[in-house]
Design a protein around this nucleic acid. Structure first.
Length: 858
RNA sequence: GGGCGAGUGGUGGAACUGGUAGACACGCCGGCCUUAGAAGCCGGUGGCGCAAGCCGUGAGAGUUCGAGUCUCUCCCCGCCCACCA
């Protein structure tokens, strides 16, 4: 096997050459040349101790292929890589082994880098970044301070510097402290006491996105609710823009749908129900949120979430006759974890006796209940119940024997009490209301009219609410970016001056977080005690660190200018590179990283830290890969013992076979099981390619048949289009078909073979490079030109015409491609076989599909 | 319960705006080569049938000359969200 295909030899050889020549390094050019750039991005990995998973290369190779094609098409390509290296696994490992996370991280990065290089990915390593590097997290901290020093102006709909915030007169008169509190409450990054998702096992507060389903994303433990003062970032201010701007980007529809749903904008109204009570100092109303103000006439009771603050006020007032019963219910709710609360099927609740609410539309008294099917954190934490038109209210009303009242005319019971009904009859829009002043109106119009009526009479207003919550940005952990704030007893929250950034992570002995909910940093007095940057008095550092979403919220900007020590990225370079042209990542990040980073970007864009020319969205196009499952379709996991290690595959088959197999395994956006046998097919394919080149070298002045020529041009078209559409599996198949056909030829014309090698180059960069050089080229195939097809050579001179009689294929005949429709039809009908099937009858319909078939109906 | 996606040979999967279902690959079967094997090469491979042929894309109906593709009803599977008023 002297001349055989030896993947590992040529792969290492060319990897060294590419690195030395820097062929994958992107060039920063003036913004005027923007149409020449292409910025392809993959989600940078967390460098885990396990090393690369076979899932990583699926995404990386895909974008590698797209960017290699763009480069061959003459684009100046940026395809960068880095490390999202802050995070719990590194810290947990540190707790166990007492090794500093930076030591483990450096080791893991070296391993990842070796693995990624061995696969032949065309990353620009000169732009490598690491979120745990102080030269990187200096800017993460600096950007955090921008949030701290800004507020959101709802009038102009964008963030502005905090200096521009107008202080209302009634605040100003209360003195300096009041003004400070006011300003702090308006900042984009603010500290707030709130109930948070607390994981008792990880001893850490979690954002809603990290505690979906009431379970800690990290360890799967059930999450508790705790009250804690935490740093928050006001992502809710951007909710509308995060939804609306999706119209201007090319994301997979399911990604858009998921983000829209997560943000959960719903338009409705606040409605005030007056409180009927004998007591004097009682708050005189309760405000509910509803999306169906048109059903106000059907309200038969009001429900408050158990944690609603009004409940305590009513109890304190002494007018509630069953205070003890209510307290028992509230405590019962508190004890329930989020998970239990979701699993419980039956509704529960308790009436607040002694007071009533007044329906503003009818003036009727309705009872007030508290129940945990109403969520404290959504809307106003209180609802108006319309059991005749809402399933949940219906269920609750049935359980507690509360009355039903419908507002629609289409029922024979229209507009009256309907206590006797056992099933929910009318739930939706489109019906006609026949209650009160909306008699005869469609619900959609009634909604509008009702909102107008409510606001005219001071009973409510139009209101849009969101499911999205502000982002809990504090973590009580060691291995994260310290939040660069000093807490001064005199001055309050004081940002660490830019000249003192980064606030470095200090050395500690213990990495274990404490049960009190404080970060390990709190134990290091020498680090915590500082001089206030503002008044020079004694002060303390903030000891919370940032979540590990911080570094990844802006890393794509840093790639544009990774070594800048004056600013996070030079605006001129941002103008050239942004936005990212193609971003691929996992679906699991749709409501996390993808949403967060869009938000950060928009914020920086508002402050002109990202130039206006870059546009309001960071990613022009977002695609998503699916998973590679274990053999047999189960998810790969250490416990199942079905994990495939990329190192083993590369060692056995080489990088090119590995890459092509991952592309051939199935549609990019569909899960696919690993198949050890399947790789053999790609190995055979590349061996065939290797051998085929011999025919080129010995070739004379042979003429390529028209048939092969058409196939070549069709293949160029197919592979080009498939790469753009990310249909890599069918692109590989098209190349296989071409190779199988070329194998039939005695010898091969050089230009034909060169076109094929160029098509192959993005998929199998090493073998393509080797064969290219063997043909005598000195320059890399990867900086050569992408082949183009000749559209006049896509059509065969003849084609096989399929003839159907009554929908069944009855004959196939060869037809000249340029024959007219009438001639083709005549030939088809004249066919002997067809005549037999016609049995002398006249066809009543003959249809011709150009270049394909004739269908005859008898 | 809601949203999204899917259901095609033994397997992974092809099939452009409705137009020859099963491309390509794996596996399997037969042959060549070999002392034997591996590799390689050649041929075959949806089902039933000796054959002509018939039947076939989760089930059923519909539209059409023609349906994997469009419409309706239903059944399964996967993922995400989930008492969001």
């Amino acid at each position: 096997m002297v001349n055989g295909f030896q993947p590992r030899e040529i792969e290492e050889k060319w990897q060294a050459v590419w690195a030395e020549q820097g062929i994958y390094e992107a060039k920063d050019l003036p913004a005027a040349l923007k149409d020449r750039k292409f910025y392809g991005l993959i989600e940078f990995p967390f460098p885990s101790g396990e090393g690369l998973h076979v899932g990583h290369p699926r995404s990386y190779t895909a974008i590698d292929i797209v960017t290699r094609k763009k480069r061959m098409e003459g684009k100046n390509v940026l395809y960068p890589i880095g490390w999202d290296a802050f995070g719990l696994p590194a810290e947990n490992y540190a707790i166990k082994t007492k090794t500093h996370p930076s030591v483990t991280t450096a080791k893991n990065i070296a391993n990842f880098k070796r693995q990624l290089t061995s696969i032949g990915l065309g990353f620009d390593w000169s732009r490598e970044i690491d979120t745990t590097d102080p030269t990187y997290y200096k800017w993460t901290q600096w950007l955090f301070l921008k949030f701290f020093q800004s507020y959101f102006d709802p009038i102009v709909g964008r963030a502005l510097p905090i200096e521009a915030l107008a202080i209302p007169e009634q605040v100003r008169v209360q003195g300096e402290l009041a003004v400070r509190d006011f300003i702090d409450s308006k900042r984009m990054a603010f500290k707030s006491e709130s109930t948070i998702n607390w994981c008792p096992r990880c001893k850490i507060g979690l954002a809603n996105e990290e505690a979906q389903g009431g379970v800690c994303e990290r360890c799967g433990n059930s999450v508790e609710q705790r009250v804690k003062k935490q740093w928050m970032i006001r992502i809710t201010a951007y909710a509308d823009r995060l939804v609306d701007d999706l119209e201007h980007v090319d994301y997979l529809e399911k990604i858009k749908a998921q983000q829209i749903h997560w943000i959960g904008r719903s338009k409705g109204a606040y409605v005030d129900f007056a409180i009927q009570s004998k007591a004097k100092n009682l708050p005189d109303k309760v405000t509910v949120f509803t999306t169906r103000p048109d059903t106000l006439f059907g309200v038969t009771y009001v429900v408050l979430a158990p944690e609603h603050p009004l409940i305590q006020a009513w109890i304190n007032d002494g007018d509630v006759s069953n205070a003890d019963e209510i307290r028992v219910y509230q405590e019962g709710t508190n004890l329930k974890s989020e998970l239990q609360r979701q699993e419980q099927k039956e509704k529960t609740g308790v009436e607040v006796k002694g007071i009533k609410a007044v329906n503003p539309a009818t003036g009727e008294d309705v009872p007030i209940w508290i129940a945990d099917y109403v969520l404290g954190g959504y809307g106003t934490g209180a609802i108006m119940a319309v059991p005749a038109h809402d399933e949940r209210d219906f269920e609750f009303a049935k359980l507690f024997g509360l009355p039903l009242k419908t507002v629609v005319a289409s029922s024979e019971l229209g507009g009256v009490n309907i206590d006797a009904v056992t099933e929910l009859p009318w739930t939706n829009d489109g019906v006609v209301i026949n209650s009160g002043m909306f008699d005869g109106m469609k619900t959609a119009d009634a909604k509008e009219k009702m909102i107008d009526w409510l606001s005219e009479n001071g009973f409510g207003e139009a209101k849009t609410t969101y499911r999205l919550r502000d982002w809990v940005f504090s973590r009580q952990r060691y291995w994260g970016e310290p939040i660069p704030i000093v807490i001064c007893p005199k001055c309050g929250y004081v940002p660490v001056p830019e000249s003192q950034l980064p606030v470095l992570l200090p050395e500690v002995k213990e990495y274990e977080p404490s049960d009190t909910g404080e970060s390990p940093l709190a134990a290091i007095r020498s680090w915590v005690d500082v001089v206030c940057p503002s008044c020079s008095g004694n002060a303390e550092r903030e000891t919370d660190t940032m979540p590990n979403w911080a570094g990844s919220s802006w890393y794509f900007l840093r790639y544009c200018d990774p070594h800048n020590d004056q600013t996070f990225a030079d605006p001129e370079k941002l103008k050239f590179w942004m936005p990212v042209d193609l971003y691929n990542g996992g679906m699991e990040h749709t409501t996390l990283h993808l949403l967060y980073s869009r938000f950060w970007y928009k914020f920086l864009w508002d402050l002109n830290l990202v130039p206006r020319e870059c546009g309001s969205e960071p990613y022009a196009k977002r695609r998503s890969h699916a998973l590679i499952m274990g053999e047999g379709g189960m998810k790969m996991s250490k416990s199942k013992g079905n994990v495939v290690n990329p190192d083993d595959v590369v060692a056995k088959y080489g990088a090119d076979v590995f890459r092509m197999y991952e592309m051939f395994i199935g549609p990019f956006d569909q899960d696919a099981p690993w198949d050890t046998n399947g790789i053999e097919g790609l190995k055979r394919f590349l061996e065939k390619v290797w051998k085929l080149q011999e025919k080129v070298i010995s070739s004379k002045n042979s003429v390529l048949s028209r048939e092969k020529e058409v196939l070549l041009h069709r293949t160029i078209k197919k592979v080009s289009e498939d790469i753009e559409g990310m249909h890599f599996n069918t692109a590989v198949s098209a190349m296989m078909i071409l190779v199988n056909a070329l194998q039939e030829e005695k010898d091969l014309q050089k230009p034909v073979w060169e076109s094929f090698l160029k098509l192959l180059a993005p998929f199998a960069p090493h073998i393509a490079e080797e064969l290219w050089h063997q043909l005598g080229y000195a320059e890399s195939i990867h900086v050569s030109s992408w082949p183009t097809f000749d559209s006049t050579k896509l059509q065969h001179l003849q084609f096989e015409l399929v003839i159907q009689v009554n929908g069944k294929v009855r004959d196939k005949i060869l037809i000249e491609s340029d024959l007219s429709e009438d001639d083709v039809k005549a030939k088809a009908v004249a066919s002997e076989k067809i005549q037999q099937y016609l049995e002398g009858k006249m066809p009543h319909k003959v249809v011709y599909v150009k270049g394909r078939l004739v269908s005859i109906a008898v």
